[in-house]
Design a protein around this nucleic acid. Sequence first.
RNA 1: GCCGGCUUAGCUCAGAUGGUAGAGCACCUGAUUUGUAAUCAGGGGGCCACGGGUUCGAAUCCUGUAGCCGGCACCA
Length: 664
Amino acid sequence: MTKLLKISLPDGSVREVPQGSTPADIAAAIGPGLAKAALAARVNGELRDLGRPFEGDAELALVTSRDEADALELARHDYAHVLAEAVQALWPGTQITFGPATDDGFYYDVKAPESREPFGMDDLPAIEEKMREIIRADKPLRREVWSREDLIAKWEAEGEVFKAEWAKELPGTEELTVYWSGNDWLDMCRGPHLPSTGKLDPDAFKLMRTAGAYWRGDQNNAQLTRIYGTGWLNKKQLQAHLTRFEEAAKRDHRKLGREMDLFHLQEEAHGSVFWHPKGYRIWRELEAYMRRKMDGAGYREIKTPQLMDVRQWTQSGHWGKYAQNMFAVPDIVPDVDEESGVASPKVADDAAWMAIKPMNCPAHVMVFKQGITSYRDLPIRLGEMGCCHRNEPHGALHGLMRVRQFTQDDAHIFCTEGQVVSEVQAFIALADSVYRDFGFTYDIKLALRPEKRFGSDADWDKAEQELRDALTANGLEWEELPGEGAFYAPKLEWHLTDAIGRTWQVGTIQSDRVLPERLDAHYIGEDGEKHRPVMLHRAIFGSYERFIGILIEHFAGKLPAWLAPVQAVVATIVSDADPYAEDVAAQLRAVGIRVETDTRNEKINYKVREHSLAKVPHLLVVGKREAEEGTVAVRTLGAEHQKVMPLAEAIAMLRSEGTPPDLA
RNA sequence: GCCGGCUUAGCUCAGAUGGUAGAGCACCUGAUUUGUAAUCAGGGGGCCACGGGUUCGAAUCCUGUAGCCGGCACCA
C-alpha cells in the first residue's frame, strides 16, 4: 500500500494526497477559483512550480498574484524566457545566454547571428509583438530533468557556444533542469516558472532599450546585446511604472541644471563642472553647513597640495594600483619661442613626474606625521574639502554623478586601536544627523575584504569586526557585501533612498591599518614606545558634485529654502510699485535673505510662471494695494493661491524657512 | 575602455530621394501698466560637432576623431 503524503496548509489544515501529487492538484481540490489563480507554490518555504510533485510530507502555500513579490519575480523571469524565445523565433541563429529578473523587469543577453547587426531599438516593436503571440498561445512551461551530457550535446548541436560553455561548468552534483515552452523551445533554467505563458499579461510589459553587455560580465569576453524590458502583473502596474519613469526623467539633474542655470559641462573640460552663480550658491550653503557640522564634531580643517611627486603616490600604493586613472604631470618648464609665443613642451626621459591628487589620504598622513604625536593627542580628526581628480573611463562619466574633478567632504581620523569603535560610532551618529537634515532615509552596508588586498588577515578580521561592533552598539542593522571593500580597508557605506525610491551610495567610513604602515605614521604611547595609529577614512556627502546632483533629483529642483539659490523674488504688478518693491527687497537682504526683484514691464501672469518654473520658493507680489498698505502677497512654490500679509510677517516667515536645519 | 545610438540657433526640435537651412521658446527694439503659470508687433542670430573623402554640388552619402545619451566594465 502506498503511503499518503501529509500536506499542511497555511490555515493549519492538513491534506493527505497520494505520491506523485502536485501543488496544482491541491489547488484544484480546494476549488476551481484557486486552481486558476495559482501561479506557483511555496513548498517548505521554497518557491516551486505548481506542477512539480511533492517529494514527501510538506508545508504548502500557494502563490497567487496577491503574493506580489513572488508573483512579480516569477512573471519577470518568464518574460525573460519569452523574450529569448521571441528573438530566436524571429532571427534563427541568435545565441541565447542569460535572462534574469531585475528590480523593475527583466533582460536577456543575446548574440545576434553573423548575418545581421546587433539588435537595436528598431527591433524592439517586432520582438514585443512576437512575445505577445507567445503569451497568447498560452504555451505550457514544463520542467524536465536532463543529464549534463545531453545538455551540452544539445547546445553544441545548435551552435549555442555560450550555453554549452555554461553547461560544461555546471556542478555534476546538482539536478539540472530545462523548461520547455510548449514543445518547440526550451531553455536551461533552475526555475521555477509559471504554469504557462498565458499567465503573463501581454499588456503588462514593454521592451525599453538595448545595450552592450559582456559575456559573464568580463570585458575580455564577447560583447552581447542586452535587451531590457520592464514587466509587471497587469497593465495598471506597467502604466504606473512608466509614469514613474517619466517622473525620473523630469527631475534629471542635467536637465534641471540647465533650466535652473546651475552649472554646465563642455567638451574642453569633459567630466569637470563649470558652476554658475546659482549652482555655486548651493555648494556654498552645503559647504558652510558641513563646516559647522565638522567643527562641532571635533574636526580640524586643513588644505593640502593638488600636485605631489609621484614618489609619494608610489609609497602609498596608489601609483601602482591606479596610475592609469591618475593625471600625471611632468615637472618641466616648456620652451617658449619668444617670437611666436608658441610653447613646445618636451618631456625629458629623466623628468620628474608629479601627479594630481586622486584622493587626500596620503597628504593627511603627511600632516599627521609632522612633529611627534602623543597618545594623549589622539584621536586627531583632520578634515579637508579636498578637490581631487581621477581620470575615469570615459564611458563612466555622467553629469554631476560621475566626474573627473570633484571635491570631497573628506576627513581622516587618526586614533588608537582602542578608540576605533567609539570613533566609528560617533561618525555613524554624525552621518545620521546630516542625512536627516536633508530628509533622506538610508540603509547601511558593510563591504568586506576584496580578493586583492594589502594587509594581514588578522588585521582584516579586526577591522571588519570593529565596524560590526560600532553598528551593533548604535542599534543599527546592516547588510554585508563580501569582496566589495577597498584594497586597504573594509568600509561602511550609506545608501540613501530618494523621494522616488532610488538609492544612492554617498557616505562611507573605512578603518585602515595599511596606509599608516606604508607611510610609517606613528604616535608615542603610554609606554613611551612608537605605535601605529589606525586611520579612519570618512565622508558624508561623498562629493559636492554628486551630492548636489542627488539633491536636485531628490527635490526635483524644488530645493528647501535654505539651499535655494534665490529664496524670494519681489515681483511688481505696476511700475508705480517699483520703489516699494526695492524697499521690500532691501529689507529682506538686510536680514540675509537671497532676494531678487522683478520690475520688468510684464504681466503678473508671466512673472508668476517664469519664477515658478525657476523654482523660486517664494514669490512676493506687490501692486498698488500692497505698496499703500505695507503688505506683500506671498505665493509659495507649489501653492495655487497667495496669502497677503504684513511685510514684517513675511520677513519672519522667510527668515525662519531660510535657516539651515542645524541652526534652526 | 567596450556595444549601440545621437550631435542642426542659447534651449527644444523640423529639415524623404544630395541643389549651401526652418519653427517655437529665449534674446534685442517698440507698443502695452497689466492682480497670480506665456500681451502684441518687428528684428538680430547658424563653419549644420570637428577633420578627410565621393560629387558639378554635401546638414544629407562614405570615413576618421571628439563629446554626449543608454547600458556594460571600472569606481581608491
